[in-house]
Simulated scan of single mutants.
Amino acid sequence: MRRVLVAAVVALLALSGCSAKDVVKAPSADIDVATPDMVAMKAKSDIEPCPAPETKDGGLPAKTVRCLGGGRSVDLSTLKGPLVLNFWNSPCVECQKESPALAKFYRDYGRRIPVLGVDAVDGYPGIALRKAIGWGITYPIVADPLGDLQGTKLSVRGVPTFFFLHADGSLTAEAGGKKNEAQIVAMVEKQFGIQL
């Protein structure tokens, strides 16, 4: 029953063009985001391990999310800025268009501006991982398959959505849907007040 509800939420996002008025939080259940097949698939990819704790209170909610495809879980409150968080999911068409550009941004600028992907409200994490690898993503990805981050500072109304964690712990957001790396660079420069 829970998987049916998650599938319904995913279908709603897909049918709404990835910009649902509200992303509904599904009831708690366990969706495995690190099956043996997923762990093996990730091990053969260039996706980086999920980040280790960096601070005690970096400004993000004290919520722990699992690493997509296995690895250490991440308490988001232990991350510090500057950090770009990109919320996406596998059925989202706009995410499919944007992700290769974000992957290129990370290859070019990831040492200066880290990126963390968040596979959000996605009942099929194996498909999400396969797509991420196909899009050339190498930045770490965490999974929030049932929308546990909804109701926090990281609530999204649709995907793709960007959040920007600043060095002082403040958080800003901007809608996704960027088509190329230049648009992502311009957005990051504006959000962080920097020149890349």
Results as ranks from 00 to 15, higher is better:
Leu79Phe: 10
Ser90Phe: 14
Lys131Phe: 15
Leu15Lys: 12
Gly17Pro: 02
Gly151Thr: 03
Gly147Arg: 03
Pro53Phe: 10
Thr64Pro: 02
Ala11Phe: 07
Glu189Thr: 02
Leu102Phe: 13
Arg111Asn: 14
Gly69Glu: 11
Ala101Pro: 08
Val84Ser: 04
Thr138Pro: 08
Met41Ala: 14
Val74Ile: 09
Gly177Pro: 02
Ile31Lys: 09
Cys18Leu: 07
Asp75Asn: 14
Cys50Pro: 05
Ser155Leu: 04
Gly177Thr: 01
Val121Phe: 10
Val65Asp: 05
Ile133Val: 15
Pro125Leu: 04
Asn180Pro: 00
Glu48Tyr: 01
Val33Leu: 07
Arg72Asn: 12
Met38Trp: 10
Gln195Val: 02
Gln150Thr: 04
Arg112Asn: 14
Glu174Gly: 05
Gly169Thr: 08
Phe87Ala: 01
Glu98Ile: 11
Ala29Ser: 14
Tyr106His: 15
Met38Cys: 03
Arg3Asn: 13
Gly123Arg: 09
Gly193Asn: 03
Pro61Cys: 08
Asp46Gly: 13
Ala8Ile: 05
Pro100Phe: 10
Val24Ser: 03
Lys42Gly: 02
Arg157Ala: 11
Arg157Thr: 15
Val74Phe: 02
Val185Met: 05
Gly117Trp: 09
Cys18Met: 00
Val74Cys: 02
Ala167Pro: 06
Leu68Ile: 01
Pro114Asp: 02
Leu165Cys: 01
Val65Pro: 01
Gly110Asn: 08
Glu48Phe: 00
Ala34Ile: 04
Gly193Leu: 05
Lys80Glu: 12
Leu15Ala: 12
Trp135Gly: 07
Ala167Asn: 06
Gly123Trp: 04
Ala103Lys: 06
Pro49Ser: 13
Ala11Gln: 09
Arg2Pro: 01
His166Ser: 03
Met1His: 13
Val33Asp: 03
Ile141Tyr: 09
Cys95Lys: 08
Leu12Cys: 08
Gln150Glu: 07
Ser16Pro: 04
Glu94Leu: 12
Lys63Val: 15
Val84Asp: 10
Val10Ile: 03
Ala8Gln: 14
Gly117Ser: 07
Phe192Lys: 04
Lys179Asp: 10
Asp108Leu: 07
Leu13Tyr: 04
Lys63Asn: 12
Ala101Cys: 12
Ser99Lys: 15
Gln195Thr: 11
Asp119Pro: 09
Ile113Tyr: 15
Lys97Glu: 08
Leu79Gln: 12
Ser77Lys: 09
Ile127Gly: 08
Leu85Gly: 00
Lys190Met: 00
Ser73Glu: 03
Asp144His: 08
Lys131Gln: 15
